[in-house]
Design a protein around this nucleic acid. Structure first.
Lengths: 209, 209
DNA sequence: AAAAAAAGTTTCCTATAGGAAACTTTTTTA
DNA sequence: TAAAAAAGTTTCCTATAGGAAACTTTTTTT
């Protein structure tokens, strides 16, 4: 059979540097994805064949992009390999379309109201990813700069990139963090960050629902 | 053609209330889902045909579960109807139980040394968290220091804290990242990091399954 | 380093997906 | 409410997916 590519479904990987220069790199294919999953589980085609009920040759052809599997086959793959179906054709970023909230709006809302944070969203080219990373310059100096607690769905990981901050929370004593320190918490609890160094602190945030 | 169902991906859900009244909620099939999407957009088969580039008859057969569409066709559907591909076979309201959990923990490292990386796990006191953050000192200088690809479930966000690195991946060209640069990718793809600066680089990793 | 075994690919065939057009059903209009 | 138009289904055919087995390549064993 002639060499052909039946499908190219992945968005490109986005690399983002500190000057906001983004580079876009090559996409992935369903065949590669399947092969990656299979080899990650250290399965041979024969073993994968037994688990999925599909012929060895069929798996080989899918992996080599010689055929486009039917939905029925995709289901057998997902079930047999014990993965969620979208993993077969989705970069991590496409998987969970449900339950995502738009953090941009939250961030902009805050900034607009009180000018407490300056948010820089990262990896914005990738939609529906499980985690949302962003850097924030912290202008706020006290609770009063906010007026009320910030809270939202999900969990949050935070690391201080520059300066020193205090993490004020609804249920805990204020926590002082220096450059390099990090913290992990439930974002449904009221929380906010204030700079305690002379210059505004810079922090990295990663949230997941 | 005889009446047949090519695929039933969800079992019927039975809801039972306190009076023992049971309601059966229909499973989602790709055909039902497609029809729902098409009609919600007030499109005829003819119009949907034009948008997707698929024959009217093909759409009809898919909607009536007479055939199992190939992945290529599913892509055309998603693209033509302007939806995310998983919408074709996913229930819109997948509820994910998120128990309110143990909250704030200031990260304090627990180190783990290998010849290639020196990992400092963060927030180790919190179990069941959605994200796993850790800092790594990168000793490795080339692929050969590893011998094989690293891969695992989930998505990964990475930010360079000190030095310069190259992110080597199975499917992309090597990506060079300097201090402050970040990248987000699918960790099922083979990947590894090597230092390219004189001193070993320090990076932050956050993964989520 | 040759032989054997295992893993992967290709061939060849059958089953089924997808398209063109005929046919049927539903909706609109006179 | 009959005729016309539009929407949807089925038929029939061609293109392609999927399986069995032959073949090739890679890895292991002696």
């Amino acid at each position: 059979m002639s060499e052909q590519r039946t499908h190219d479904m992945y968005p490109s990987m986005v690399v983002e540097d500190s000057q906001n220069v983004t580079r876009t790199i090559e996409p992935i294919t369903i065949g590669r994805q399947l092969k990656a999953i299979r080899t990650a589980n250290k399965l041979t085609l024969e073993e994968a064949s037994k688990r999925t009920g599909l012929a060895r040759s069929t798996l080989s052809k899918i992996e080599n992009e010689q055929i486009s599997p039917t939905f029925t086959v995709m289901q057998k793959l997902a079930h047999g390999l014990n993965i969620e179906l979208p993993q077969l054709f989705t970069k991590p970023n496409n998987i969970r379309a449900t339950g995502r909230r738009d953090i941009t709006k939250i961030a902009q809302g805050r900034t607009h109201l009180t000018s407490t944070y300056e948010h820089e969203l990262l990896a914005t080219e990738l939609s529906n990813k499980k985690m949302m990373p962003y850097k924030s310059r912290v202008h706020a100096r006290s609770f009063d700069d906010f007026g009320e607690w910030v809270r939202h769905q999900g969990e949050e990981f935070m690391l201080v990139l520059e300066g020193e901050i205090q993490l004020l929370t609804e249920f805990y004593e204020p926590a002082s963090l220096k450059t390099g320190d990090s913290v992990y918490y439930d974002a449904t609890m009221g929380h906010l960050v204030v700079s305690t160094s002379e210059t505004d602190a810079l922090i990295l945030w990663v949230t997941a629902d």
